[in-house]
Write a protein that binds this DNA or RNA. Sequence first.
DNA 1: TGTACATCAGTGAACGCGCGTTCACTGATGTAC
DNA 2: TGTACATCAGTGAACGCGCGTTCACTGATGTAC
Lengths: 201, 201
Amino acid sequence: MRVLIEAKSRYHHGDLRAQLLSAVQQLIETKGHANFSISEASRLAGVSSAAPYKHFADKPAILKALVLECMERMSAKMLAAIADLPVGSKERIDALGQTYVDFAREEPGMFRLVFGLTEAHQGDDELSQAGQQVFGIVIQATADCLGVEASAPEAQERAYMLWSFVHGHSFLVIDGKVEAQKMSVDETKLLNGISTAVLQI
Amino acid sequence: MRVLIEAKSRYHHGDLRAQLLSAVQQLIETKGHANFSISEASRLAGVSSAAPYKHFADKPAILKALVLECMERMSAKMLAAIADLPVGSKERIDALGQTYVDFAREEPGMFRLVFGLTEAHQGDDELSQAGQQVFGIVIQATADCLGVEASAPEAQERAYMLWSFVHGHSFLVIDGKVEAQKMSVDETKLLNGISTAVLQI
DNA sequence: TGTACATCAGTGAACGCGCGTTCACTGATGTAC
DNA sequence: TGTACATCAGTGAACGCGCGTTCACTGATGTAC
């Protein structure tokens, strides 16, 4: 299903750390975030179940690495999405929202993992810093749009409103609640409507 | 820790079904929604690990029953919250939002379970019907406030916006993202601001 | 009111399973001379 | 260029664990006569 087996029977695998993370990611998407295991990921990467422990201390460490990588990817996508749009435009805000929702739809398992790491990772500095980086992009775009500093409480409040909304919509979509309610949602209109409303409070 | 052991060594327990659900609920809150087990819940209810299977087919069936019960409780709380407020008032909408968030904060484990039952329960009619009942309350309040029928697309759209927002905020709160962002959120102001904005689009 | 019996709701032992992790090991690689 | 050796990154067997579920069983309850 994947070209994970390209490792031509080398004893030294070369890039196990990365391939392991990718295998776990793959399993999270296919099996669900509750039904994957490191053992299975090892098998998928074509390696013994003990191999991961040469690269990571334990399972939580693997998940943390995966989440960090995921958040960086998210940041990158968001920055790319606004790159060609004028600073201070509402378009930027809508593009960020759309990117967020798209990400959730493309990688629902990872999306849930990123926000569900409540177990051993509560209060982890590296993780919350990565989170601040992502949210910082939204705050900046909101501040630019309002014509204030990013540190202004107004910018933070509005940005948080936008984030909450887009976050909730993402979960409702990937958890199938939109269909379950027999609703059809015009997403572009929805995102546009919300950002308009929030910005002109 | 609880008065679950009031079953005075009766062989026939009397109310195992209910006590089992309550034990599972308790574990979900204390251990997290990923780390509870039916076995442990049986122990907590003072019963052998085989006993649950006299009342439920399997684990998914237990979870489904628990979620249904939870959604009914949610409905009841929401209806109670608006009972004394005038029909068609914006206060009703804010009260519903506040109730939703309060529920998530009080029972984060159950809240996550209700929306995370993506595994074996996708497309379950009973469950999505229960969901429609809860969301229906929001739609009705929104329609009343806008002065339209509940079936009007406008009502559904606005209600969905409100729901998304409140849903996202709930998750961000229980997943600790609000603190992680070092934000302090004035929740009343937040809910009020959002509903005002959404209603006057 | 008393007895016979079907049904109900538990027990407790056992099952197979896959997990996370450890351990002593070994083959491949890189470096020093 | 060749050899000796330290280090690295794997193996594979084993561990203890708790899980979900089954099974034959048994004690308590309700009903019919």
